[in-house]
Nucleic acid binder design. Structure first.
Lengths: 195, 195
DNA sequence: CCTACCGATCGGTAGG
DNA sequence: CCTACCGATCGGTAGG
């Protein structure tokens, strides 16, 4: 791992736990065992790091979604696959996911607009699947915006409690979660594995 | 409204949109049309404001939950009432809710521990309801922790998109959301009102 | 990668 | 509520 990658990784962890604004370059340097000034031979600025972390995650979410998007399967199954893909990206990088979800607001223009656009397109992909499912009668709700917001909300809180050493692996979480959301608490038969 | 309450309100809005750490006392003073130093005749410190906002919301959530907790109704109905109560608190103070949910980490000890404890007890209340529903066969899931985390997750993202001027009022959102979560996307018959 | 340092800005205070 | 200011700390740079 290059020094730059090390810096990004340690910064991701600090940005997530303390927040971007409350993390100082001296905190970061201390954690790496070097002086604050030395960071700047590897990175351009503090925000430079944040940009890389945010777009690395944005790219990962988009790439995972694109593998699902055009499959010739019912909307409910496609939605399940998209949820699983989303959960997998989240659980494989819980710290970067936390930064992606909570610290993007500290990006400055024009990067901020580019980021917001990517995010909006991603959510639109989910809405398309739900619209498809409404159109062909699989889903009986009417408001795809509301559904997608609720869906992504429950997924996007995952990073706050997911522990890699926990009893469920990412695929089990993805299964359980998509079943819970599609079938509802009253009808879900699935059980937490190894509980 | 007292000057202190005005300060808290404007600070809540700034803390939510920029984050606690990235909001300066000079930003806050500017918004109020006074000098930064003048703030300190009304408040003790920057964190003093954060504490009031966080505990005001914590108290509101706990109070709303307690009105539901001991009702003699089935667990699924009690859960629905608790969800509705939670949504009502969230939507009535979306900015303070955002601060409560995202900025509490900037509290310092011993306030931080006290806050975390309150929050844990609140979530435990939800888990109790779900356990009750599992025990009497209403819910067929096995892991109340997972269910409650998923439930609160989808509720706690509400503040990021809820607009008081939107087409659904808080009670309609509460209804729709609790139905969606209990019955699932595949079985929910409810429609967004005025859509 | 370090030393030494910069201009700016931070939360907060004294005195009126 | 303002003026005037404090010590500390911030992100970042020059020169080696």
């Amino acid at each position: 791992m290059s020094r730059k990658e090390q810096i990004d990784q340690v910064a991701t962890s600090l940005f997530r736990s303390r927040g971007f604004a409350a993390t100082t370059m001296r905190d970061l340097a201390l954690e790496l065992g070097i002086e604050a000034g030395s960071l700047y031979s590897h990175i351009k600025s503090k925000e430079d790091i944040l940009q890389r972390v945010c777009f690395k995650m944005a790219d990962a979410f988009v790439a995972a979604f694109e593998q699902v998007q055009n499959k010739a399967v019912p909307a409910s199954e496609k939605l399940q696959l998209a949820v699983a893909a989303h959960v997998r990206v989240l659980t494989q990088n819980p710290e970067a996911a936390g930064v992606f979800l909570n610290e993007w607001k500290h990006l400055s223009e024009p990067t901020l607009s580019k980021f917001s656009q990517m995010r909006h397109r991603y959510e639109e992909g989910f809405r398309e699947i739900v619209r498809e499912g409404i159109a062909n009668g699989e889903f009986r709700v009417t408001d795809e915006k509301f559904v997608v917001l609720t869906l992504l909300s429950s997924l996007n809180w995952l990073h706050t409690w997911y522990k890699p050493e926990g009893k469920m692996n990412p695929d089990q979480i993805a299964d359980y979660l998509s079943n819970l959301l599609l079938n509802g608490l009253l009808n879900t038969e699935l059980h937490a594995q190894n509980a």
